[in-house]
Simulated scan of single mutants.
Amino acid sequence: MNSTSRAAAPLVREPRHAPVAHLIRGGVIEGVHYGSVVVLGADGTAAFQLGDAEAAFYPRSALKPLQAVAMARAGLPLEGELLSLAAASHSGEERHLAGARRILELAGLTEDDLRNVPDLPFDPAVRDTWVREGRPPSRLAQNCSGKHAAMLYTCGLNGWSLDDYLDPAHPLQQAVAQTVEELTGQPVAQVTVDGCGAPLFAVSLHGLARAAARITTAAAGTAEARVADAMREHAEMASGSGRDVAELMRVVPGLLAKDGFEGVQVAALPDGRAVAVKIADGANRARVPVAAAALARAGVDPALLTGFAGEPLLGGGEPVGCVRPADALSPAPLTACA
């Protein structure tokens, strides 16, 4: 499919998920995580699919690189750390808050102009510190504040209204929707509101993987390449210290990766190989090893991925099992399971 062709909108239906991960305790399958996985080859074709990669679903924060591309196309001049933050689900560390403040300063605005929901920092350790210090939830600490600050900056540069920048009919959100449809290659199936208050567009898992591939294979200097470069070069601004998605981008050369709430993961390599994952029950403990297994399916050296095989299951404080990708996805697990 070329960049101008479009598939039909994905169907809104109950996804036909399949088992993608097993909880193994003492050699017995204790539980099963269902979900869907798609792996694209460098030529854009689906090299592997498990579950339902074609039903409509909400990518949640995995959509942020596409939103950042739309803003860059609309004139957002940010680069480097600040552009990475514009595509971030950040942890609420001081550098993230400082970056969001800087974007607002460039726009001549303040935290009061943000319309995302006030929240405590996403990172548990940072959040605990805030609670101990008696700091209240704030719009700046909420994990999407970089994106919202960049949205306001983009609106100001284009002379668009600020108070209603989250309205799906607003010129900014119309530009985002157009970019989502172009990069995914399909019409948006449904529009709702994400947790932060921004419009959220339903596409297919296949479409999300296709969009990531188009971002990483775009020509140098394009909005897509600027976003990809910023996120890869400043992975901890796009997420946070110790976050698995940042570590993935550090250990896999050229990888662009973004996670999303409810068990979503997308990742793409510079040659167009891409993966997208949705865990049906939203479990992060399954998202990480399933995404790693999908990347191995895409041809990433398994030796680079052993650190993403999943957290052990404990019994009496000792490892007695693990969360392991289902055999249909990964017949040869990245690590042994007790």
Results as ranks from 00 to 15, higher is better:
Arg25Asn: 08
Arg25Trp: 03
Gly26His: 13
Gly26Leu: 08
Gly26Lys: 13
Gly27Pro: 10
Gly27Phe: 12
Val28Gly: 03
Val28Gln: 14
Ile29Thr: 13
Ile29Leu: 02
Glu30Met: 06
Glu30Thr: 08
Glu30Arg: 09
Gly31Arg: 02
Val32Leu: 02
Val32His: 05
His33Met: 05
His33Arg: 01
Gly35Met: 04
Gly35Thr: 06
Ser36Phe: 12
Ser36Gly: 05
Val37Cys: 07
Val38Tyr: 07
Val39Phe: 03
Val39Gln: 08
Val39Met: 13
Val39Trp: 04
Leu40Trp: 11
Leu40Cys: 11
Leu40Gly: 04
Leu40Ala: 04
Gly41Val: 11
Gly41Trp: 05
Gly41Ala: 09
Gly41Thr: 13
Gly41Leu: 09
Gly41Asp: 13
Ala42Ser: 15
Ala42Thr: 09
Asp43Tyr: 09
Asp43Glu: 13
Thr45Tyr: 12
Ala46Val: 15
Ala47Asn: 10
Phe48Pro: 01
Phe48Leu: 15
Gln49Lys: 14
Leu50Trp: 14
Gly51Cys: 06
Asp52Ser: 15
Asp52Gln: 14
Ala53Phe: 14
Glu54Ala: 13
Glu54Leu: 14
Glu54Asp: 15
Ala56Cys: 11
Ala56Tyr: 10
Ala56Asn: 06
Ala56Phe: 08
Phe57Gln: 11
Phe57Asp: 04
Tyr58Cys: 11
Tyr58Pro: 03
Tyr58Ser: 14
Pro59Tyr: 15
Pro59Lys: 12
Arg60Asp: 01
Ser61Thr: 11
Ala62Lys: 01
Ala62Gln: 04
Ala62Leu: 00
Leu63Ala: 15
Leu63Cys: 00
Lys64Pro: 03
Lys64Arg: 07
Lys64Gly: 10
Lys64Ala: 09
Pro65Met: 11
Pro65Tyr: 07
Pro65Glu: 00
Leu66Val: 10
Leu66Gly: 07
Leu66Asn: 01
Gln67Met: 12
Ala68Pro: 09
Ala68Arg: 02
Ala68Cys: 09
Ala68Tyr: 05
Ala68Thr: 11
Val69Lys: 05
Ala70Ile: 08
Ala70Val: 15
Ala70Thr: 01
Ala70Pro: 04
Met71Gln: 12
Met71Gly: 03
Met71Trp: 08
Ala72Trp: 02
Arg73Phe: 07
Ala74Glu: 06
Ala74Asp: 08
Gly75Val: 00
Gly75Ala: 06
Gly75Tyr: 09
Leu76Gln: 01
Leu76Cys: 01
Pro77Arg: 02
Leu78Gln: 04
Leu78Met: 00
Glu79Trp: 01
Glu79Cys: 05
Gly80Tyr: 06
Gly80His: 06
Glu81Lys: 09
Glu81Gly: 00
Leu82Pro: 06
Leu82Ser: 02
Leu83Asn: 03
Leu83Glu: 01
Ser84Asp: 01
Ser84Pro: 14
Ser84Arg: 04
Leu85Lys: 02
Leu85Tyr: 02
Ala86His: 05
Ala86Ser: 15
Ala87Asn: 08
Ala87Gln: 05
Ala87Glu: 12
Ala87Met: 00
Ala88Met: 06
Ser89Pro: 01
Ser89Tyr: 09
Ser89Asn: 12
His90Leu: 10
His90Glu: 11
His90Cys: 09
His90Gly: 13
Ser91Pro: 11
Ser91Trp: 10
Glu93Pro: 02
Glu94Asp: 15
Glu94Tyr: 04
Arg95Asn: 06
Arg95Thr: 03
His96Cys: 10
His96Asn: 11
Leu97Ser: 11
Leu97Met: 14
Ala98Pro: 10
Ala98Asn: 15
Gly99Met: 03
Ala100Asn: 06
Arg101Phe: 00
Arg102Gln: 14
